[in-house]
Design a protein around this nucleic acid. Structure first.
Lengths: 133, 133
DNA sequence: GTATTTGCAAATGATTTGCAGTGCT
DNA sequence: AGCACTGCAAATCATTTGCAAATAC
């Protein structure tokens, strides 16, 4: 019983080879678009259909196993849900990387000023990564 | 010569009634989806086509007159470009509001840690607005 | 054994493209 | 006259749906 089997069960999703394949690829990639995911997974399951891929992605997002990251000027990418964090986007190579930083006091501040009760945030910093500079 | 005429000329776009109409509606709404924009603009230009709307939106985004805001779990909204700012999203009424806050030191910090050179950022705080609480 | 999942094909929805007609400069 | 813009229709691209066969538990 590997990690991804457990992860599926914990989220009340049946374990299928296709689902394990999806999670393995997303896990290895860190962040991946539907398009790329389909390309890669076809190497393992050459008969998998796009419909199956979409259905599973949607299930996994619904049960909060995957998260969709909407990237400015690009297609969305998906990641396995983990501790809240922000992202850095390289505009040259389109790489997306995690960024740990504390928005806590900032969010608290915004809440006090606006009266909103916040329970989520998405921050993407865009620029050029060290490798592309 | 009103403000939106000027705005178009400054961005090297020809002035047409349709474009003025688009800018007026976006300006009044603050943030608006393509769908809603189309509904409203048809009241003024009942013959305007979706193709024209898309073409113009795309032009205006390209020349940095409009900005697309990708909203978690919803369709994108568009706003007229102005000083950099963040957004607050109400998950109940789907309202999107501007939020002024300084990410400067935070971005600088992230840059130092990661080696990225950042020149843009998008932050959306999601929660419940005062009115919907 | 029963309910769920898969893969295919078709349907839908969103956005883009090609092109003829129109209007501005 | 010449170039850009508009509106229509058709094309494309992304995503979803319906259904029969296969699979998970």
């Amino acid at each position: 019983m590997n990690d991804y089997m457990l992860l599926l069960k914990e989220h009340n999703l049946k374990v299928t080879p296709q689902r394990l394949g999806i999670l393995t690829i997303v896990g290895n990639a860190g962040h991946i678009s539907i398009e790329d995911l389909y390309t890669y997974i076809r190497k393992d399951f050459n008969s998998i259909s796009l419909a199956t891929l979409y259905k599973n992605i949607n299930f996994m997002v619904e049960v909060n196993l995957l998260k969709e990251i909407k990237v400015p000027n690009h297609k969305s990418k998906y990641e396995i849900v983990k501790k809240e964090h922000s992202h850095m986007l390289c505009k040259k190579c389109y790489k997306l990387e995690d960024l740990e930083l504390s928005l806590h006091s900032l969010v608290q501040d915004a809440s006090k000023k606006s009266g909103y009760l916040f329970d989520d945030n998405t921050l993407v910093l865009s620029g050029i990564c060290p490798h592309c500079q």
